[in-house]
Design a binder for these strands. Structure first.
Lengths: 360, 360
DNA sequence: AACGTTCACTGAACCGGTTACAGTAACGGG
DNA sequence: CCCGTTACTGTAACCGGTTCAGTGAACGTT
């Protein structure tokens, strides 16, 4: 079996046809399962395929037919949050009989566009953008153009876990999580525990998702009658390292007794920073994260955080992309909820007698 | 800009050619950058491309030319270890001017084969298998067949972080890490700290990588004059959950004072189990992991583990696949080293007076 | 003036599939 | 026995690119 034909290169459908003594059309029909040939013919063709180790050329095939590909574009392939979403996308895609390909932009905005283009060139049926990215107006315009191009080709661009600022007439669907209210709940949780000096370890201000979390944080403060203090918000890029650094600044320069972090990763950094500075969590410092990635369970103390339904985000995005009916509006939007999951990283502030610095 | 042509579907190269008043050959050459046309012609063509919002059909293109695709196949897209390797693959692939696509098998062996096939159908220049998988003889045979098929098409199959049992004549390259000696070093580290009852939280016995770690563990025991005790090795599937369960069994059923885990994930489970059973790490139980994924830094206590150069594994694999000279042997093998990185999860055993169970 | 080059470009034959259209054989009904 | 189906198969025209072989004009030689 699989005795490579003498010549180099791969066998083509004509090789198979001539070896089986039938026409290419017959081979094509049999292989694509279009119809049932009489057992004898079927057998002969299959034998020829076997003998020649023939595999169809999917590129040639999708010259006339749908490619069956769903493409997912991710900023950072090592980010647990993104990859959890990605697994939801994948799951739904294979459930719908497609194959799912993941491609990373390595954080470079231009690569995002070129990757989308690539997928468009390859005839992907849906392109799903997972996660945030800084959005200049130019970038947004190009994204809109790409979406229109995809649309014209009968494909779909879906934004997942990332808001869309491009207007409703662009053929773009969006699945996101209500992060503003998640942030509100998280911050409220800290305020209810008695904290008044609640810091926020924000994400990059260019990221719209970061903006939403900041807004929720500020709204909660105001709702509890606490005046937002700009000194209490530090910016990081949501990674562990930059979370560590920003938290160090917060802990040394301010009197914050609690930190609401824009991501679990930066919360991990914050906890490490606290430990290195001799502050114990949650006794000396309460920490709340965002995302609820698996890591949250393994931090010490186990991290109280805002649960974002990552897999469901991915699944919804894929469903939106693939199950589209003729008269759907050009642009649809699904918003999933989030909720805080309470674990062990929050406690009441150490001393309620704030003025004095003496131990209670 | 991008004023969609009246008709549906995408513009083809002939549309562009006729609009620019040149032949398709000219357009093709200009767009593929094959030669430099006079500015006037170049300009006309580019304008037509712009007007029609033309994008090449990459599938049609790769009917005649190399696809420039590198494919990576992963078992679990959410595994930090795999995705760290994956980022190395991706990095090297784009450095070599290719695009890199990731595809997951979702842990199903048959899907591994079908995904490889798919990539073969699509004309990938290299297929890189990242991570282990149970290998039946049949699976191995099919893998060999796939490798031969790829080879005939001028592509390459590379196994990364996964050994190859299929013989050296198969056109398969392998990049792996010396896990046996990593396991030896890790176990020795525990033995040197004074432990004699060292348990092993093994991976699935069908996984060859798990076997290597078990061997290193046993060799270390023998080297230190300790008789391996089968009761001290528990099997898990390297996930956190199954690590938790296996560790619970180990902690309640045996008198182990240290556990060498086959992965950091299962070590995380073991630490959680110890905590839930009221044993403190490292005072009552020492734990060593394997892989050195980012999580290791965030566990409490910070996890002593065996560092596996994940990104480098991925980079090497890609280099092997892409940089191949004519007279290279059919099958090459690169083995990278590993070393234990000491953090805080190991301490001498609590009581050297093991016989009595009284508190010291 | 005749001739060899180079330049800019074209026509048409590929690449490897799918599929519309058409043709043949066998079968069953009237 | 004739004719309309039905079942199967073949021919050839696509799909959308790349590229080989070649044409005609302009240019520089001798």
């Amino acid at each position: 079996m699989a005795q490579g034909r003498g010549s180099a290169g791969r066998a083509t459908i004509r090789d198979v046809a001539s070896r089986a003594g039938v026409s290419v059309a017959t081979v094509s029909r049999i292989l694509s399962g279009a119809y049932t040939a009489p057992p004898a013919t079927h057998e002969r063709v299959m034998q020829a395929v076997q003998d020649l180790d023939y595999v169809v050329n999917a590129n040639a095939r999708s010259l006339n037919t749908a490619s069956g590909m769903v493409a997912m574009v991710v900023n950072d392939i090592t980010s647990p949050f993104f990859m959890n979403v990605a697994s939801g996308v994948e799951e739904q895609a294979v459930a719908d009989g497609r194959v799912c390909l993941v491609c990373s932009t390595q954080g470079v905005p231009e690569r995002e566009l070129s990757v989308i283009d690539l997928m468009r060139q390859r005839g992907a049926e849906a392109v799903i953008l997972v996660g945030g990215m800084a959005e200049t107006e130019e970038h947004l315009a190009q994204l809109t153009a790409a979406a229109e191009g995809l649309d014209r080709a009968g494909a779909r661009l879906v934004l997942c876990a990332r808001p869309w600022k491009g207007g409703a007439k662009a053929p773009v669907d969006v699945v996101e999580c209500d992060m503003e209210s998640g942030a509100f709940a998280a911050t409220s949780h800290l305020l209810s525990a008695g904290h008044t000096r609640v810091a926020h370890l924000a994400g990059p201000h260019e990221f719209s998702v970061a903006g939403q979390r900041l807004e929720g944080y500020e709204r909660a403060l105001r709702a509890h009658g606490v005046k937002p203090d700009p000194a209490l918000v530090a910016e990081s890029d949501m990674t562990r390292e930059s979370g560590y650094e920003a938290a160090c600044r917060l802990l040394t320069d301010t009197d914050a007794t609690a930190i609401f972090c824009a991501s679990d990763m930066s919360a991990a950094g914050a906890i490490a920073a606290a430990r290195d500075l001799g502050r114990s969590v949650p006794d000396d410092l309460s920490v709340v994260g965002f995302d609820d990635i698996p890591l949250a369970e393994d931090l010490y103390p186990r991290l109280t955080t805002v649960h974002v339904p990552q897999q469901e985000l991915g699944r919804s995005a894929t469903r939106l992309a693939l199950h589209r009916r003729p008269m759907d509006p050009p642009s649809r939007r699904v918003v999933l909820g989030s909720h805080v999951v309470v674990r062990q990283s929050v406690a009441p502030p150490a001393r309620l007698n704030t003025p004095g610095k003496a131990e209670s």
